[in-house]
């Protein structure tokens, strides 16, 4: 395919030419396979459905993907570190309701309400992490408990309250497609920089890859894990703030199953469910694949229930593909 790439590697390292070449093309191929899958899926709908062919449709795919994509950036961090957070959908609900209360009842300035919401999300995420490292109960169970408990908390907070009609300055956060898209890209870039350029971020890959090696090498594994769950909670909170601003109301039923959509996008993008590998770029592409299918199918008149079946099948195909890829390595 690209002999130039091969020969340039050979110059720098004659000893390991073929393996380096294999490795580089392997990683390179994978992200391109996912992008190719996205383009292919887009083209299929482009051919099949005339109304799908507009720029507005493309924009709406990005726009609809943005809120879940922000949440999924946090999920990416947690999964890379070998953790799992099933409670982010409920954190989303608590934060949505809390920000609604802060704005409409406490009358906080918008920026302070937003900060408060982010703080609550980070705090609930941290609580997931603290309970895990303190008790040794597996992430699946602790965050499954969190899923239920935080949902109950959101319902208690919201009961008897009308949380709607927020200040214009707040509604801007969720209005149209451009602002949410800008927030999505900003969140993805910052999360990406965190994962690749900072000490805490790169340690997520080591902890997810082999926790014992990381601990013996002197990495404070427990403390680091708590931080990753905090990041996950804060990004779930940001997503919640975006949605409350967009809908102009808050209710505890929002966020249901979002954790599963986020995990699906992360996995479709190619981040490992078992930790140690992945990235937010992949997650964005995975989220776009999911949204393209959802939007495309609804343009073709396929109902929501059938869309869910389609997404379910794609998740399994994506993981099968990943397993197959690893076995042929």
């Amino acid at each position: 395919m690209s002999d130039t790439q091969n020969s340039s590697t050979a110059v720098s390292n004659p000893g390991a030419t073929s393996r380096t070449f294999e490795r580089i093309t392997h990683e390179f191929m994978h992200i391109w396979q996912v992008i190719a899958a996205l383009v292919l899926i887009y083209l299929v709908f482009f051919v099949l459905s005339p109304p799908f062919r507009s720029f507005d449709t493309m924009l709406s795919i990005f726009g609809q993907a943005s809120i879940l994509a922000v949440l999924a950036c946090g999920t990416t961090v947690v999964l890379i570190s070998g953790g799992l957070d099933l409670s982010v959908g409920s954190i989303f609900a608590v934060v949505g309701v809390s920000v609604g209360i802060l704005l409409s009842e406490v009358d906080l300035p918008v920026w302070l309400a937003v900060l408060g919401g982010l703080g609550i999300g980070a705090g609930l995420g941290a609580l997931n992490g603290i309970v895990q490292v303190a008790t040794g109960v597996p992430a699946f169970i602790v965050t499954l408990g969190g899923l239920t408990a935080y949902k109950g908390l959101a319902e208690i907070l919201a009961s008897g309250r009308d949380l709607s009609r927020f200040p214009d300055a707040f509604q801007v956060i969720g209005s149209g497609y451009i602002v949410p898209m800008a927030i999505m890209f900003a969140a993805a870039i910052l999360t990406g920089l965190f994962l690749t350029k900072t000490r805490l971020g790169i340690r997520a890959f080591a902890i997810g890859g082999n926790e014992d090696v990381a601990r013996l090498a002197g990495v404070p594994v427990k403390r680091s894990r708590i931080y990753y769950y905090m990041v996950g909670g804060a990004l779930a909170a940001l997503a919640a703030i975006m949605e409350v601003a967009k809908l102009n109301f808050a209710m505890p039923a929002r966020g249901q199953s979002y954790e599963l959509f986020a995990i699906a996008a992360v996995v479709i993008g190619g981040t490992s469910l078992f930790g140690g590998r992945g990235g937010v770029g992949k997650t964005l592409i995975g989220m776009l694949i999911m949204q393209t299918i959802t939007v495309g199918l609804s343009y073709m008149g396929v109902g929501t229930s059938y869309q869910r079946i389609a997404i379910g099948i794609i998740i399994i195909v994506a993981v099968y593909w990943d397993v197959w890829r690893r076995s042929t390595r």
Binding site: R199, A206, N210, D212, V213, A214, G218
Partner: peptide
């Protein structure tokens, strides 16, 4: 068996815990 993390680069392995 617990010397290196397979999933991360050599650079990161050498400095793991002491970046």
């Amino acid at each position: 068996d617990l010397a290196l993390v397979n999933e991360i680069p050599i650079t990161q392995n050498v400095f793991l815990g002491r970046e």
